[in-house]
Simulated scan of single mutants.
Amino acid sequence: MTKLLKWLYVANVVGALLYVAVCLPKLMMGTPIYPGQAGLLGQVTAGLLLSLLPLGSERLFHFRFPLVLKLIYEVFILCSVLLGTGMQFYNIPYWDKFLHLFSASMLAGLGIAIFCALTPKARLKTTSPLLIALFAFTFGTTIGVFWEFYEFTFDGLLGLNMQRYMAGGVALAGRAALMDTMGDLFADVFGALCLALLAYFQSKKDVAFLDAFKFSR
């Protein structure tokens, strides 16, 4: 798995650098490859930095993220920033919903990691698997809700369309205006639920399953 993680780091870093190397000159020549190219370049550059965030945090604070969470995180950054935003994969039907499923599962896993870090080791062995699963589910879905708050806020402040409440520059009305947001929330709930159920049944069978989600030094 560590070899896979290295390849994901390479894909994110080299992919972002190649994107900038190809798209920036085209933008400067006045023939951008994608609409809104300047903004996309900024987001891809930010994605490059985000892909290195776990590695930098580990070296700075002298701890280790769970390997499984790092793998999911790097895949998410690759699919959401370089492919989704930079190369416009968000235009592919349900690409966004797939990423919401993926990110909610990742966040539920992070919830388990936080729960394990805050619970004494001796007590963790006797903690109800249902409590752990409920915490993971709640954590994953709550962050998804806060993300929708973020999209709603900046759609209003900056005139964006992250919540897809407009089509062809015209504001949608009624149920149509809610479809994207509600679809995202359904995906968040289902993604977090899948990880929570996995954690419940696996930790009920063997509490050592939780070791895969623990921070280490």
Rank of each mutant, 00 (worst) to 15 (best):
residue 161 N to H: 06
residue 162 M to D: 00
residue 162 M to E: 05
residue 162 M to V: 04
residue 163 Q to W: 08
residue 163 Q to V: 10
residue 164 R to G: 04
residue 166 M to S: 10
residue 166 M to G: 09
residue 167 A to I: 05
residue 168 G to K: 07
residue 168 G to D: 10
residue 168 G to Q: 15
residue 168 G to C: 11
residue 169 G to E: 07
residue 169 G to T: 02
residue 170 V to W: 12
residue 170 V to K: 15
residue 170 V to A: 12
residue 170 V to S: 09
residue 171 A to D: 13
residue 171 A to T: 13
residue 171 A to Q: 15
residue 171 A to C: 02
residue 171 A to M: 15
residue 172 L to Q: 14
residue 173 A to H: 13
residue 173 A to G: 12
residue 173 A to V: 05
residue 174 G to L: 05
residue 174 G to V: 14
residue 175 R to T: 14
residue 175 R to K: 15
residue 175 R to N: 11
residue 176 A to H: 12
residue 176 A to I: 11
residue 176 A to T: 03
residue 176 A to D: 15
residue 177 A to H: 07
residue 178 L to W: 12
residue 178 L to M: 14
residue 179 M to S: 09
residue 179 M to W: 08
residue 179 M to Q: 13
residue 179 M to F: 08
residue 179 M to P: 04
residue 180 D to F: 02
residue 180 D to W: 09
residue 181 T to W: 07
residue 181 T to H: 10
residue 182 M to T: 15
residue 183 G to H: 07
residue 183 G to K: 02
residue 183 G to Q: 04
residue 183 G to V: 09
residue 184 D to Q: 07
residue 184 D to S: 02
residue 185 L to V: 04
residue 185 L to R: 04
residue 185 L to T: 08
residue 185 L to P: 06
residue 186 F to T: 15
residue 186 F to P: 01
residue 186 F to L: 13
residue 186 F to W: 06
residue 187 A to E: 05
residue 188 D to I: 10
residue 188 D to M: 01
residue 188 D to T: 12
residue 188 D to A: 03
residue 189 V to K: 01
residue 189 V to I: 14
residue 189 V to D: 00
residue 189 V to R: 02
residue 190 F to S: 03
residue 190 F to N: 03
residue 190 F to M: 09
residue 190 F to T: 02
residue 191 G to Q: 03
residue 191 G to Y: 02
residue 191 G to F: 01
residue 192 A to G: 11
residue 192 A to M: 08
residue 192 A to R: 08
residue 193 L to V: 05
residue 193 L to Q: 03
residue 194 C to E: 01
residue 194 C to Q: 01
residue 195 L to M: 13
residue 195 L to N: 00
residue 195 L to K: 00
residue 195 L to C: 05
residue 196 A to V: 04
residue 196 A to C: 08
residue 196 A to L: 04
residue 196 A to G: 07
residue 196 A to N: 03
residue 197 L to K: 08
residue 197 L to N: 06
residue 197 L to W: 01
residue 198 L to S: 04
residue 198 L to R: 00
residue 198 L to Y: 00
residue 198 L to E: 01
residue 199 A to H: 03
residue 199 A to Y: 00
residue 199 A to V: 15
residue 200 Y to I: 05
residue 200 Y to N: 06
residue 200 Y to P: 01
residue 201 F to H: 08
residue 201 F to K: 06
residue 202 Q to M: 12
residue 202 Q to C: 12
